[in-house]
Design a protein around this nucleic acid. Sequence first.
DNA 1: TTATTTGTATTATAATATATAATACAAATA
DNA 2: TATTTGTATTATATATTATAATACAAATAA
Lengths: 132, 132
Amino acid sequence: MIIKLDMRSSIPIYLQLRNQIVMGIAKGELKVGDYLPTVRQMAQDAGINVMTVNKAYSILKSEGFIEIDRRHGAKICPRKDTSYEFREKLEEELSLIIAESELKGINRDDFLKMCKNIFEKINIINVEGCEA
Amino acid sequence: MIIKLDMRSSIPIYLQLRNQIVMGIAKGELKVGDYLPTVRQMAQDAGINVMTVNKAYSILKSEGFIEIDRRHGAKICPRKDTSYEFREKLEEELSLIIAESELKGINRDDFLKMCKNIFEKINIINVEGCEA
DNA sequence: TTATTTGTATTATAATATATAATACAAATA
DNA sequence: TATTTGTATTATATATTATAATACAAATAA
C-alpha cells in the first residue's frame, strides 16, 4: 500500500497516516487479516519517525480498526460500533460539513449525489467486520 | 446567539467558535447582514481572550463567511464557492467520513438517511448568498 | 539457549500551535 | 475630540507534534 504524506499540510503526519490506512481498509486495498508493515518498516518507507508511526497505529488500535499482536505486528481487524456515542459524533461531524456545503452553494441533491458517487467509488468490496 | 465552548475538548477554542458560527449561519440563527458581537464582547461573553476570537473571525473572513468592516465589525456575508478546489476538498473530507462510517457498520442507506435528516433539521430557511 | 523481531516506553530536544495578557495603533464616526 | 472597531505587537505559558537514540518485554526462530 502506497502512503502519501504532505509534510507541508496542517494535518499532523500521524493523522494523515491514520486516515490513509482507514481509507485503505474501506477501499479493500487492505484486507481483513492482512498485516500492516512493521512500525520500523513503515517509518523507513514513509521517511518519518518510528514513534510517529506508532502513534498512528495506537490510535487505529484504540478506534478498533486494527489489532496489535507482539511479534506479528498490526493486523487489519475493523470492529463495528453500533453505540449511540458513535452515531452522535458522526452526526455532529456531518452537520458541520453539510452546513459548510450548503453555504458554499452545494444543495441537498448535489450533496447526496456526491455521497452516492463516493460510495460507488469506495465500496468495491463490502468489508466484513472482524470477529477474531 | 449562544456559544458553547468545551475547554477540555481537543478541538481548539478558535475552531469551536468558528464552527458554531458557520452552523449558526446555516441554521438561519445568524442572518445575512447581521453583525457578530464585537471581538471584545464575544471574548467577554465566552470567557476567552480577544485574540482567540479575532483568530476565529479572521478565519471566517478568509473563508468567505463574513466581511469585516472597521468600526462596524463583522457582518454575516456567506459567499458561494463553485471552484473545483472546494469540491475536491469536500470530496476528500466526505470520503474519509464515509469510509469510517462504512467500517463501523453504517451502510449506504443509513448514511444517506442520516444526511437527509440533517438537511431537514438544518435547512429551515434557504440561506441566500451575499453579494455586497 | 541465543539472537532477532515485534510493539512500546523513556528521555531529550526542537519547532510549532494554542491561549492568554497588556498595550498600542489606524480607521471610522458620533 | 473621544470612542469604538478590528488588528498588530510583545511577552509568556502550555500543549502538540516530530524527531532521535536507547532500552525493554514478549514472542519466535535459529
